[in-house]
Structures are given as structure tokens and as C-alpha cells.
Amino acid sequence: LQLFIKTLTGKTFTVEMEPSDTIENLKAKIQDKEGIPPDQQRLIFAGKQLEDGRTLSDYNIQKESTLHLVL
């Protein structure tokens, strides 16, 4: 599923993930694309901070959802 990642600077980029992927996987993918170390990434969806060990489906993140990346 394609997700939109929006940064505080207003930049938006996309990543391609599976619902079974963990937040950790997502942070690694963001590191590949943007060079931001996972330990500096905080991801927010629907007002909640996402925890590394959980999956996208745990948070009911669907295709074309927008996640906010806070550094």
C-alpha cells in the first residue's frame, strides 16, 4: 500500500509498504529514501505516536493514508 509521509517543513514523499510491515520497517524505508536515522523519527497517525513493534494494520493504516514525520 502506498503511504504519504508529510514532514513539518511541508515536504511530502511516498513509500510503498505492506499492511503486515512494522513501524520499524517503515522507519527503515524512510531512512533509505530520506537518510533520516530511525531513532530520530517520530511518526504520528490520527493523533497517535506509532510504536516500532506494531504493524501498520494494528493502527488501521490504509492505502494512501498520510503519516506525519516529526524529527
Rank of each mutant, 00 (worst) to 15 (best):
L1V: 12
Q2D: 08
Q2K: 08
Q2V: 12
Q2R: 12
Q2S: 11
L3C: 03
F4K: 11
F4Y: 15
F4S: 08
F4W: 10
I5M: 02
I5W: 00
I5H: 00
K6W: 08
K6E: 11
K6I: 13
K6C: 05
T7H: 09
T7D: 08
T7Y: 15
T7P: 07
T7E: 08
T7M: 15
L8I: 13
L8S: 13
L8T: 14
L8M: 12
T9I: 08
G10Y: 03
G10R: 07
G10K: 06
K11R: 11
K11F: 13
K11W: 08
T12Q: 09
T12H: 08
T12A: 07
F13P: 00
T14I: 13
T14A: 11
V15K: 00
E16T: 15
E16A: 12
E16W: 14
E16Q: 10
E16V: 13
M17T: 07
M17A: 15
M17K: 01
E18A: 13
E18R: 11
E18L: 11
P19D: 13
P19T: 07
S20W: 13
S20F: 15
S20D: 10
D21S: 10
D21A: 08
D21R: 06
D21C: 03
T22M: 07
T22A: 05
T22Y: 15
T22Q: 05
I23R: 00
I23Y: 02
I23K: 00
I23W: 01
I23A: 02
I23V: 13
E24M: 11
E24Y: 13
E24H: 08
N25T: 09
N25E: 15
L26P: 00
L26F: 02
L26Q: 00
L26K: 00
L26E: 00
K27W: 02
K27D: 00
A28R: 12
A28E: 08
K29Q: 07
I30L: 04
I30P: 00
I30W: 01
I30D: 00
Q31K: 11
Q31W: 14
Q31H: 07
D32E: 13
D32S: 12
D32M: 14
K33R: 11
K33Q: 13
K33T: 12
K33P: 01
K33I: 12
K33F: 09
E34C: 05
G35Q: 06
G35S: 06
G35H: 09
I36D: 02
I36M: 06
I36V: 11
P37A: 11
P37G: 06
P37H: 12
P37C: 04
P37T: 07
P38G: 07
P38S: 15
P38W: 11
P38H: 13
P38E: 14
D39M: 12
D39A: 14
D39I: 12
D39T: 14
D39G: 12
Q40Y: 07
Q40A: 09
Q40H: 13
Q40L: 11
Q41M: 14
Q41D: 01
R42K: 12
R42I: 12
L43Y: 05
L43I: 11
L43E: 00
L43T: 01
I44G: 03
I44Q: 06
I44F: 15
F45N: 03
A46F: 08
G47A: 04
G47W: 05
G47N: 07
G47H: 07
G47L: 03
G47F: 04
K48M: 13
K48V: 14
Q49C: 05
Q49Y: 13
Q49G: 06
Q49L: 10
L50R: 00
L50D: 00
L50S: 01
L50F: 02
L50G: 01
E51C: 04
E51Q: 11
E51I: 10
E51S: 09
D52A: 07
D52N: 09
D52I: 06
G53D: 08
G53N: 13
G53V: 08
G53R: 08
G53S: 13
R54D: 05
R54L: 09
T55M: 15
T55S: 14
L56H: 01
L56W: 02
L56P: 03
S57W: 11
S57R: 14
S57H: 11
D58P: 00
D58Q: 07
D58A: 05
D58H: 11
Y59C: 03
Y59W: 02
Y59I: 03
Y59A: 03
Y59D: 01
Y59L: 05
N60L: 07
N60M: 09
I61Q: 02
I61D: 02
I61N: 02
Q62E: 14
Q62I: 13
K63R: 12
E64P: 05
S65D: 11
S65L: 04
S65H: 06
S65M: 08
S65K: 04
S65W: 04
T66R: 05
T66C: 04
T66D: 04
T66Q: 07
T66W: 07
T66M: 07
L67P: 03
L67Y: 03
H68R: 07
H68W: 08
L69W: 02
L71Y: 12
L71F: 09
L71D: 08
L71C: 04
L71W: 09
L71H: 12
